[in-house]
């Protein structure tokens, strides 16, 4: 490393400084990653240490109680299952339908560009705003003040719809156009092409998007909190017009209790919530790796 133009000593000193600066900053960059991972680890340990002692069969099969040690998670667990299933029933046809329309049927007109722009904006609307929408439109207008499961599921549907639409659009875009051309060449019309060629090919991609959207619906508490308000639900909802609570909302209720013992119960609830989410994400990843066949170009 000699440069005849500069005196060797100053040249080497400058080089040493630059290398040192590189070393110092790479340490900083690594530290950023490490802090992120440590934060995640601290969060998980915090929850596990607080919650594991309370996690037992009694906790999973009992209703909420004024006494921390008697408290259980059955009602919110059932409420979450109701909300997820109903949200899926509403979201899948609407979300997938919107994506099919935008990708396969719509011309690139100004109106359709408006729909796409609108979906991008909806994805950024705070969840609490969806809660206000659901409160005014579903609870007060549609159900006359009844804070029921259907109102909650419809609100969640509007909240996760952009995620499903965008993921389904990506899945449809990934289907090679040669597949469509082949079907068209056989005389198929647009809907037949979608039904027989595009949908089967795009289904795995759509499925993982739908599952991710539903796990968002499971973890979201702000809109449900506005829709259902704070209720001690001590029953398993029996029908879509029943009152309800969900896991994150029950966890929030426990965190808000003044008695310190409820903290451990809240942490146990968080463990259950994280296990549900983890298994859903696992299924999404499995579907993606199992069915995602790269079409040969």
């Amino acid at each position: 490393m000699t440069n005849p133009a500069a005196t060797p000593s100053s040249r080497q000193k400058l080089h040493a400084v630059r290398v040192l600066r590189d070393r110092i900053f790479v340490t900083g960059f690594v530290l950023a990653v490490v802090i992120g991972i440590l934060g995640l680890a601290a969060l998980l340990f915090d929850v596990l240490i607080d919650g594991l002692p309370f996690l037992n069969w009694h906790f999973l099969t009992s209703y909420a109680s004024r006494k921390p040690l008697d408290s259980g998670i059955l009602a919110p667990l059932a409420g979450t299952v109701w909300i997820v299933v109903m949200t899926a029933l509403f979201t899948v046809p609407i979300g997938v339908g919107t994506a099919i329309y935008l990708e396969e049927f719509a011309s690139k007109s100004r109106f359709n560009r408006l729909i796409e722009l609108n979906i991008a904006n909806l994805a950024g609307v705070p969840s609490v705003i969806y809660g206000l929408l659901g409160l005014a439109v579903f609870v007060q207008f549609l159900f006359n003040g009844s804070r029921n499961l259907t109102a909650g599921a419809l609100t969640m549907t509007l909240l996760v719809l952009p995620i499903v639409v965008i993921a389904s659009q990506e899945a449809i875009k990934a289907v090679p156009s040669s597949y469509r051309d082949a079907a068209y060449a056989m005389g198929a019309n647009r809907w037949q092409v979608v039904k027989a060629v595009v949908l089967p090919q795009a289904l795995p991609g759509m499925m993982s998007g739908i599952i991710l959207a539903l796990s968002r619906a499971i973890g979201e508490s702000a809109p449900i909190l506005i829709i259902s308000s704070l209720v001690w639900v001590t029953f398993v909802p029996a029908s879509p017009d029943s009152k309800f609570t969900v896991l994150p909302l029950q966890i929030f209720t426990w965190i808000s209790q003044p008695q310190h013992a409820f903290r451990g119960i809240a942490a146990a609830g968080i463990i259950v919530l994280l296990i549900v989410l983890l298994s859903m994400n696992g299924i999404a990843i499995w579907i993606r790796s199992r069915y995602q066949t790269r079409p040969e170009q």
Binding site: V33, G36, I37, G39, L40, A42, L43, D46, V47, D50, S215, I218, G219, E220, S221, A222, P248, I251, F252, I255, R263, A266, A267, I270, L273, L274, L277, N281
Partner: peptide
């Protein structure tokens, strides 16, 4: 390896972060 681990952070429900902030 690192990227998915970091992205787990984005998938954790916010009520859990609230608990973490308050108790840790």
């Amino acid at each position: 390896i690192l990227k998915p681990i970091l992205e787990v952070l984005a998938g954790i429900p916010t009520v859990v972060y609230g608990y973490f902030a308050l108790t840790f």
